[in-house]
């Protein structure tokens, strides 16, 4: 039976490799998201506006999602 490129892509080794790449990207993203929280905190202290609190809340939620996606990807893939 001939092996198609579709079979190759869904082979276990390739899938593990893709999983590793996805997890690596998500880990870097989470680090970046945590840095954004720090940055927003710094910005909010420098320029105090009514929006600062909302922006900080968004940054924290965003970082939470970024960390959550790592666990989600680790569990699902």
């Amino acid at each position: 039976m001939p092996v198609t490129s579709g079979d190759l892509i869904s082979s276990q080794v390739i899938l593990i490799f893709i999983k590793g790449v996805i997890l690596l990207i998500l880990i870097f993203y989470a680090i970046f998201a945590l840095l954004i929280v720090r940055q927003v905190d710094l910005m909010g202290k420098t320029l105090i506006t009514p929006v600062s609190g909302v922006v900080k809340a968004i940054a924290i939620i965003h970082a939470g999602f970024a960390v959550g996606f790592i666990f989600l990807a680790f569990g699902l893939l």
């Binding site: 198609t4 490129s5 892509i9």
Partner: peptide, 17 residues
């Protein structure tokens, strides 16, 4: 087109990224 034959969870993860 075979690249798109990845399992749906993998495609979803790429979409999320």
């Amino acid at each position: 087109e075979d690249i798109l034959n990845l399992p749906p969870t993998y495609l979803s993860a790429l979409l999320v990224i």
